[in-house]
Structure formats: C-alpha cells, structure tokens
Design a binder for these strands. Structure first.
Length: 469
RNA sequence: CGGGGUGUGGCGCAGCUUGGUAGCGCGCUCCGUUCGGGUCGGAGAGGUCCCCGGUUCAAAUCCGGGCACCCCGACCA
C-alpha cells in the first residue's frame, strides 16, 4: 500500500508546503523571538556541508577568514549615505547596555561593509598590501517586514566577503571570479540548482554599490529566489572610510572594494528547488547522509549485516548510516527518511538476507530495485552520481519549461506571474520595470542575449522578470 | 501602515450562536498485538480555556478594555 502523501498539494499553496517540509523533516523551527529560526540537528547537517563547500571555494579564490564584532557604532553606518539609507529601516539598535543609556547607539550588524571599511583603512597603506581579500562567517540581523524560515529570517547565518583592490578592473574581475568560481560552481555543482547569472538594475542594486551581480534560481512554483550576490562597491566605501594606498608613483589613491554574500537561504533554495510532495530530495553531493541502511526486522542477524553493509559503503566513500531502530515500525521509518530526502535507502530484511540480496530505493524517483548484496557499495556509489546529475537535469528542464520569451510589457506581466519571462531590456526600461513592480513582478537580472554576465549596460541586454520570494 | 483572521494540554483543532462537570485527533508513557510503506486494541499522564474587569447562582461561552500572534500586499541574502 502506498503511503498517503504527508504534504499538501504543491498547487494549493507552495509556501505552506515549504513550511510543512521544513518542520516535518526536522530541519528548523520558528525561534522564540519574532522572525528568528532554530536550526535543528538534521538541518544543521545540511548547512555544515554547504558551509564547507563554499568555504573551500572561497579560499581557493585566495580569500582568508576573519571575525569582526557583532556591534557596529551607529556613526559608522552614517558615513556612506546610500548605505545607511538603504539599511536604516531594518536595523536593530542597542541603546541601553550595562543598565544605562549608551552615549552612542550600537547597531547589530545587518552586514559589515562599514566595519570592514574602518579596518581596511588601517590595514592598507601601500599598493603592496593589495589586493586584500577577506571573508567572514557570521550571523547578521535585518528586521525584515515579512520573515520566512530559511528564506528571510530576522537573524541569519552567512558568509560575507570584503575585498580591496588597486584598480577598478581588478575589483571587477574579482567580484566576477567569486560569482562564477565560488558561487555558481557550488550551486550548480553541489546543490544541483541551475542559477542564472546577471547584473541587477539600478532599482535593485545593493545600497552603496556601483554594480550588483546576482545568482537567481527558480523554485518549484515558478518564483525566483536570489541565492547570492557579488557587489562592486566602486570607491564609495573607500572614500567614506579613507581606504587609501600609495601607488608605485607615490600617489595617494582610493581603493576599489567589493563585497559578496551567501547565506542559510541556500538551504531553503535547495529544498524549494528539488522538493516534491513526499518531502525533501537532497542532492547526493550535498547530503550529509547519502545512504541509510534500513533494517526491516532484526532476525537472523539482519542488523549485523546492515552494519557490515554500512561499513562497506563508508569504505566506498559513501556517507552512510544504519537505521536498526526496529522498535519503530518499518513504514514509519521509511517515510521519515524519505521526508528527510536521503538520496538512497538500502533496505534489508530476513527474506533479503536469506537470498543474499538487498532492496535499493532511490529517493528522486521513488523506485525500488533488488540487487545482490555483494556489489551494493559500488552500485550505491554509481546511483548517487546518477541521482546528482538527474536532479540538476530535472531542475533545468523545469526552469526552461517555465521560461518564456516575450517582447511586450503585457506579455511579461502575464508570463512573470507563473515563471520567468525574458524580454529585451530596451522593450522594458525603467518605466516598464516600475509598471511590473506594481504587479508584484521584478526584474531579477540583466543578461547578454547569450546568457553572459554583462560588463556594462551598453549594447543589447535581456531582462529576466519574475515574482520573487 | 492597509485588508482579513486567530488565541482552548507538546502540536493541530472542536466547543462559543442558545452560559451549566473542558473535549477530539496527533504525539508521549505502560501492556499486549503487528512488523517488506505511517498496524491494531486497551490502560494512563498532561490544561491558569491570552490577560484584566463587568454581568450572572454559574462564564471557554455574554459585555467592555488590553495584549499577543498568524495570513495577504510593499522590503531583503
């Protein structure tokens, strides 16, 4: 008998579906304070994998990790006019400490450009100190109007990179390097989320940046999610914080800085991109448990055999776990692992043991297959690769099926309600963008017609418009 | 801020119109049974009915005031 679906139909209410999956898969729950989130052990396991994968790529791009304070003097934020204007509505500010009103309020960091600016100004003296490539893993706070678990929480975990360069070209190249080699590489390669890369319009640009680049993914309901950003900050912060250096000709010059970030939102994006009505589908390369060996009933040494198989899987490089908790019914456990999205289940019972076989179940298609117990480790390893590639292919096909090419504003509004619409930027422009916004549709990014990331806004550009989370 | 809605065991809810011993499902504990896709039966534990005040013999229920939260719209990684 097939299990009843534990989730509401996706067509009913995707946001509700998402909340249900997050709660039932034991990833996270709402925290005690408004808009905050408690990440549960299973959810944190996924986050740790994301963090490790991203950290390795960032380091490969030459950046080093640092840790800066949580509190920022309010005056720091004021130094860059656009920056403070952009963030002031969503700041949490400490005005009392030690039982007394503070002389200067402390802002709980919403992002750390100002703090990095202050410190970089001290650390950079000469062109020999450049480029200065820094990264920080930290929590930040933004008092958003409408929080959503993983996607937009009041407090969230992220990495924020901050760099200083001698020239505009060097800064621009580095911001793009992070975009491609760290962010896109990880999201496509491990999360199996096919992101579109491009630049933001002036309207959507980061507060204080001269150029904002983005990675946009399509969720299972056709809405867009920004999975990460990389900003060129020009000399705005260098001027405000006096991040200056002496060049080889003894001339004092402002640096060119960048900042870039990705967050726990990636967990949410992964869930909403791949999840189905039976719960999560975690891409194998990301999964902290890639295969669970499920003991149907512990008779005739089934549990011992399960442990042996798990050890064999580990030897083959598969992150495996044994579920011998037979006090809980088999159906219950099977459904729980399915809900958690573990890519492969190896089920073994007395009958299998007697016949020298196991039952292999792949989560992505929910299909079962009986295979000899002898070669199961190699079979699982192969299957994981196949599932990884399959999830990406499925996500690409789904996105492309929901992407239309249009040439008029009306068609863009229509198509943007349920998916992505590509429209020549000339046909839209600032006015068209404003009209779209009234309909709840935004320009997610601008691209070259061939999908490339533009270096400037000259020449032909295509806008991708959609509803966003 | 605008528009809707809800506060009742851990979670999800009914009861309120028409006042009269506080209930149901899930979860939890114990016993038995079942175990190859969320077994079944039985016995239990667990509640200031959001808060304050009023009406009444009697308030989860009616009246007044307050508080909190959720959903939809504008914001964001």
């Amino acid at each position: 008998m097939p299990p009843r679906s534990v989730l509401p139909s996706r067509a009913d209410d995707f946001a509700q579906w998402y909340q249900e999956v997050v709660a039932k898969a034991e990833l996270a729950e709402t925290g005690p304070a408004r808009g905050t989130m408690v990440i549960r052990p299973y959810g944190y396991g996924l986050w740790e994998r994301i963090q490790a994968g991203m950290d390795a790529r960032i380091k490969a791009c030459g950046a080093e990790n640092v840790y800066l304070p949580l509190f920022i003097p309010e005056s720091y934020l004021r130094r860059e006019a656009e920056h403070v204007e952009g963030f002031s509505p969503e700041l949490a500010v400490v005005t009392i400490a030690g039982g007394k009103p503070l002389e200067e309020p402390l802002v709980v960091r919403p992002t750390s450009e100002t703090l990095f600016g202050e410190l970089m100004a001290k650390w950079v003296q000469s062109y020999r100190d450049l480029p200065l490539l820094l990264n920080q893993w930290a929590n930040v706070v933004r008092w958003e109007l409408r929080p959503r678990v993983f996607l937009r929480t009041t407090e969230f975990l992220w990495q924020e990179g901050h760099t200083a360069h001698a020239t505009r070209e060097d800064a621009a190249a580095y911001a793009r390097r992070i975009l491609h080699e760290a962010y896109a590489d990880f999201m496509v390669g491990e999360l199996a989320v096919p992101v579109l890369l491009g630049v933001k319009t002036a309207r959507e640009r980061f507060a204080g940046a001269i150029n904002t680049m983005t990675l946009e993914a399509m969720m299972g309901d056709g809405r867009a999610l920004q999975m990460g950003t990389s900003h060129e900050l020009g000399q705005n912060f260098a001027r405000a914080f006096e991040i200056d250096y002496l060049d080889a000709g003894d001339e004092l010059r402002h640096c060119w800085t960048t900042s870039w970030g990705t967050s726990t939102r990636m967990v949410g994006g992964m869930i909403m991109c791949h999840g189905d009505d039976f719960g999560l589908r975690v891409p194998p390369r990301l999964a902290h448990i890639q295969a669970v060996v499920l003991v149907v009933r512990d008779e005739d040494g089934v549990a011992d055999e399960a442990r042996r198989i798990a050890a064999e899987l580990e030897d083959a490089g598969v992150r495996a776990r044994v579920d011998a908790n037979t006090a809980t019914g088999f159906g219950r456990r099977a459904t729980d692992w399915e809900l958690k999205g573990v890519p492969v289940r190896v089920e073994i019972g007395p009958r299998d043991l007697a016949e020298g076989v196991v039952t292999l179940v792949r989560r992505d298609r929910r299909t079962k297959e009986t295979v000899p117990a002898a070669g199961v480790a190699a079979a699982v390893a192969d299957l994981l690769e196949e599932i990884q590639a399959g999830l990406l292919a499925e996500a690409i096909a789904d996105r492309d099926a929901r992407t239309s090419r249009v040439t008029t504003l009306d068609d863009a509004i229509e198509a943007g309600r349920s998916g992505f619409a590509r429209i020549p930027w000339d046909a839209l422009g600032d006015d068209g963008e404003a009209t779209l916004a009234e309909q709840g549709i935004t320009v997610r990014l601008l691209q070259r017609p061939d999908g490339g990331v533009p270096d400037d806004l000259e020449g032909p550009l295509e806008a991708v418009v959609a509803r966003a989370y």
